[in-house]
Amino acid sequence: MLLGPALAVSAILFSIGVGGVLLRRNAIVIFMSVELMLNAVNLTFVALSQQLGPQGQVIVFFVMAVAAAEAAVGLAIMLAIFRHRETVDIEAFSVLRG
């Protein structure tokens, strides 16, 4: 696999993730976009480690573990807020706005 195209694809994926976080209003979709950002970074690390040695691949495992921990905590927080509000649409969360 060529390094240039792999980096370009991961940059595009990362941008899609950022766009998703900024544009979508559903907390779960926002969280999915964040996961997309992290996986784009993983792709960058794997592509780079073809040339730079195995360290990049090791970092990918760290990132996966961190993403799993974040998912566990994040979904629990969303569950907690759903019990109060019956929705995870961030437009509806206005108690603390501004």
Partner: peptide, 19 residues
């Protein structure tokens, strides 16, 4: 309710920043 909202906001922005 405010605590849950604060946690959600902090979580989403924090994860975004980590990316």
């Amino acid at each position: 309710v405010v605590g849950a909202e604060a946690a959600l906001k902090y979580f989403l922005l924090g994860a975004f920043a980590s990316g």
